[in-house]
Amino acid sequence: MDIYLLEAIINGILLGGVLALLALGLNLIFGVVDVVWICYADIVMCGMYAIYFLYAQYGVPLPLACAIAISGLAGLGVLVHVLIIAPVLRSPPLNQLLATGGLLFFLQSFATLLFGTDFRNIGVRLPVLEVATMYLSFARLIAFAISLVGAVALYFFLKRTYLGTAIRAIAQDREIVGLMGIDDRRIYLAVSAIGGALAGLAACLLALQYDVHPFIGNTFGPVIFMICVLGGLGNMIGGFIASFVISQIIAIGGYYGSTELSYVFAFTFFIVLMLIRPRGLFAP
């Protein structure tokens, strides 16, 4: 096999890890709160700026900067829920999409206002590994590994704790959880915080690989929705697998064509697949 193709495939797998993390967060929120956060990738953008300023500007140690970013975004997730989602919880889905879409617009413009449109890099230079004449980015390897750890941690949280079990329960029967002594509003807050924290973790990993600018969310946002829909909205395992399918299409498409073309392939694949299996890849 062509060594460059292999390199592209491996890079695709590595990219899939971070996408999977974001897809988990978005799916978690959708499955529980039943609202699609169109602005999810822009929340990640906020986290990337936080890390950039904390680490590159104010010299906060990187791990601490990441911890602050993760908890900050958890707080932002709660804020988004309280200020924007809660008021439209009983509105038609369209209005919910638009409310978070308006937030997307706000976040991108506000970031432009505060930071300008410059591309900023946190300036951490991680080595590039050479394995059998293939070049693999160390930053991507780390991102992949940490994404997997995050996904596994989330799995155990959902599987082993009362709160996690309640989160899965509410996604199955929204109305009845009150009878179990579960306050759905508190679960929504918890899920929004977890979704925010996952976005924060993704922000840490992406900041190592990409420059941050106000519109970076546009690069990832549509891809993440696509992944979630392919896997079946709310289906976390489906989304996890779909992340790797899509990241492979992007990686191999990029190998044969340009970056944009690879995304065109991915979106076209998505549209075609949706028309064949409208409820996602893994729907029964």
Binding site: V88, G102, L103, F106, T112
Partner: peptide, 18 residues
């Protein structure tokens, strides 16, 4: 203030939807 206009616009959009 590049972005200021759109920032306010975004806020108005959200308020309008709500």
């Amino acid at each position: 203030f590049i972005g200021a206009a759109n920032t306010i616009y975004g806020i108005l959009l959200v308020l309008c939807i709500i």
